[in-house]
Amino acid sequence: MLPPRFLFPPSLIVAAASVVSLTSMANIALLEIRGRPLQYSKFSEVGSGSHNQNAATRKKIVLPGRTGMLVAYTPAFLTGAASFALFPDEGLRFLLLKSAITIHFLKRILEVIFIHKYSGGMPVDSMIVISLSYFITTAIMIYAQNLTQGLPDPPIDLQYPGIILFLIGISGNFYHHFLLSRLRGNTMKEYKIPRGGLFEMVICPHYLFEILTFWGIALISQTLFSFCFGIGTTWYLMGRSYGTRKWYLSKFEDFPNHVKAIIPFIF
């Protein structure tokens, strides 16, 4: 069976990794929808078993939220940065992919340090899972791209639309993260309904733009793994946005009903 005209032909290893990635992210998305999110934010309070979950969390080793997220993102960033030395001259597409991945995780690290405000901690086990997930995904994405060297480009070239989509996604994600950071007053436990930008239409525009970011990377890469990760990220963040909207509905009686989770007017 020939691969689609917009993908490089995958190796057996890449195909297997793609299936595992897609399956695992679909499972996490279902957990988010069922009210069992990863325990690193206030949204872990959502769900019928939230009291037991919070009691279990208190028994775990918990790091400050900022420290936990720095550890979660740094290995993936270092992997992206190291790929410039490991694969120095492998063409424009590979350069664009390495740059996009490295810029994405560098942005996340800078936001953790200078933008985000944290109301709680992160259990060490959650931090390890997230860190390994980002690290392994980044490494496989770069490895899959390396395997395409010497192959002709797919008949349908999507790398330039991918650049545009990536830039839109990363810019929109940063802007709405900045708006979120301005909601907090001097009290770190203070929460408000977000306003401004696409917050007037959806409660998670930062997730929407993150999806666009990873689809931009997928279009730049045009490997099976990058496309499967784009699909998995879409499922996961749609599930997480559903849980986020549910949290706001539980906390604010005046939450506007017209504000959807992640897709304006639809979901």
Score class of each variant (00 low, 15 high):
L2S: 13
L2I: 11
P3D: 09
F6H: 09
L7H: 03
L7Y: 02
F8H: 05
P10I: 03
L12C: 11
A16R: 11
A16F: 15
V19K: 13
S24D: 11
S24H: 11
S24Y: 10
N27R: 14
A29C: 13
A29E: 01
L30W: 14
L30A: 14
L31H: 06
E32K: 03
E32I: 05
I33Q: 00
R34P: 04
R34C: 10
R34D: 12
R36G: 10
P37H: 05
Q39Y: 08
Y40N: 04
Y40L: 13
Y40M: 13
S41I: 04
K42F: 08
E45A: 13
E45Y: 06
V46H: 03
G47H: 07
G47S: 10
G49L: 12
G49K: 14
N52G: 11
N54E: 14
T57W: 08
L70I: 12
V71M: 12
V71S: 07
V71K: 09
L78Q: 07
T79M: 12
A81R: 06
F84L: 05
D89Y: 12
E90V: 07
L92Y: 14
R93L: 04
K98H: 12
K98G: 03
S99F: 13
A100V: 08
I101Y: 02
I101E: 01
L106C: 11
K107Y: 03
I115Y: 03
K117H: 13
G121A: 05
M122I: 14
M122L: 09
D125T: 13
S126P: 01
S133G: 14
T137N: 15
T137R: 04
M141H: 09
A144I: 05
A144C: 11
A144G: 07
N146M: 13
N146P: 07
N146V: 09
T148A: 07
T148S: 10
P152W: 09
P154I: 03
P155W: 15
I164E: 02
L167Q: 04
I170K: 02
S171H: 10
G172I: 00
N173G: 05
N173C: 13
F174V: 09
H176Q: 09
L179M: 10
R182P: 01
T187G: 15
T187I: 08
Y191L: 06
I193V: 15
P194F: 00
P194N: 01
P194L: 01
R195Y: 01
G196T: 07
L198I: 01
F199I: 06
M201Y: 11
M201I: 04
C204H: 02
C204A: 15
H206I: 02
F209C: 01
E210D: 14
L212C: 12
T213I: 11
F214E: 01
F214Q: 03
W215K: 06
L219Y: 09
L219P: 01
L224F: 13
C228N: 05
G230E: 00
T233A: 15
T233K: 02
T234N: 00
T234P: 00
W235Y: 10
R240Q: 06
S241I: 00
K246H: 08
L249G: 01
L249C: 05
S250K: 08
K251W: 09
E253L: 13
E253S: 14
D254E: 14
H258M: 08
H258V: 04
V259F: 00
